[in-house]
Simulated scan of single mutants.
Amino acid sequence: MTEIRTPRLLLRRWCDDDLAPMSDINADPRVMRWIGDGSVRDLDHTAQAIERWEEEWDKEGFGLYAVELLASGELAGFTGLSVPAFLPEVLPAVEIGWRLGQQFWGQGYASEAAHAVLEFALQVRGLDRVISIARVGNDASENVMRKLGMVPERETKHPVYGHPLRVHTIDLTEYQA
C-alpha cells in the first residue's frame, strides 16, 4: 500500500515536484530545531534524504510518506515509518515520525497522518510494536505521540549530539484505530 487517503490528506510516495517544497521545510529553523543537531538542510541534503526514504520503501516495505493536502495539493511534509539506525540501543525497532512545514502546524495534520500510518503498520505490515523518539522539550511531537496512545518507555541521550531523548512506544496488538 503506497497510498493512504485520510479525510484531508493523501499519503503517497515521493515525486520530483516534492523536492522544492520539502527543501523549504528543511530550511526552516523553527522546523529543524528539534531534528539532529538543529541545523537547517539545503536542497542537496533534501534530495539525498528523499532518495534514502525511497530506498527504505524498496528495502523494508515501508517508509516515509509525502503528506499532501487533498484540498490544495500542497506538500505539507512527511510522516511514516523508518528504522531508527541513529539510536542503536532501540534496535530492532520501527519508528513512526513526522515533519511538517510550520504553516501546517496546529491543524491536526500530524495526528491524522500518524493515525493512518499506525493502521498501515498494524494491518498491512503486521508490526506488533512501533516506537517514536522525540528530543526532550519537543512538546508538540510528544502531544502527537500521546494522541496516538503511545507511552514513554525510556529516556536516553542522542549518541552524537548528547541531547536528551524520550522514546515512546505503542503495542499495536492493543492499538484502537
Rank of each mutant, 00 (worst) to 15 (best):
T79K: 03
S23N: 02
T156L: 11
D37V: 00
V90K: 01
A140K: 13
V40Q: 05
T79N: 15
G137F: 06
T2G: 13
M1T: 12
G162C: 10
W57C: 06
E155H: 09
K157M: 13
R135Y: 01
G80A: 08
L10S: 14
V67P: 11
G126Y: 07
N143F: 12
R30F: 05
S82P: 06
F78S: 09
H158M: 09
A110Y: 03
A49D: 15
W14F: 08
G106A: 04
L64A: 06
A71C: 09
T173G: 11
W98C: 04
E68N: 12
T46S: 06
G61D: 09
T156N: 04
D18A: 02
I170N: 02
A121T: 00
G149D: 04
Q48S: 14
V90Q: 01
P159V: 04
A20M: 13
M32W: 03
Q103N: 15
F62I: 04
P7S: 04
E119I: 06
I133C: 10
R166N: 08
L64P: 06
I50D: 05
L127G: 02
D128G: 14
G108V: 10
E68W: 09
W105T: 05
I131Y: 01
V144N: 03
M1W: 04
G162R: 07
D16R: 08
I131G: 07
V130I: 15
W14P: 08
R154D: 03
A134W: 00
D16Y: 00
A134R: 03
S132E: 04
G126F: 01
S72L: 02
E68S: 11
Y161Q: 13
E95S: 09
V151T: 12
R8F: 06
R8L: 14
E95N: 13
W98I: 05
A85R: 14
W53N: 04
I50Q: 10
W98Y: 13
L11Y: 00
W57R: 03
G61M: 09
H115D: 04
Q102C: 09
A116C: 09
M22A: 12
T169R: 12
T169S: 15
I96T: 15
W14V: 05
I25T: 10
P21V: 03
K147W: 05
S132A: 15
K147Q: 14
T169A: 14
T6F: 04
G149N: 08
I25L: 11
L70P: 03
G162V: 07
N26R: 07
V67A: 15
M145N: 10
A66D: 08
I133G: 10
A49N: 14
V83F: 06
S23M: 02
Q103W: 08
V136Q: 13
R41D: 02
D139H: 14
K59G: 10
I96K: 02
V31C: 00
G162I: 02
F104L: 07
E68Q: 15
D44Q: 13
R154S: 14
A121I: 01
H158S: 11
V130H: 01
M22I: 07
D28T: 05
R125K: 12
R99W: 01
S72D: 12
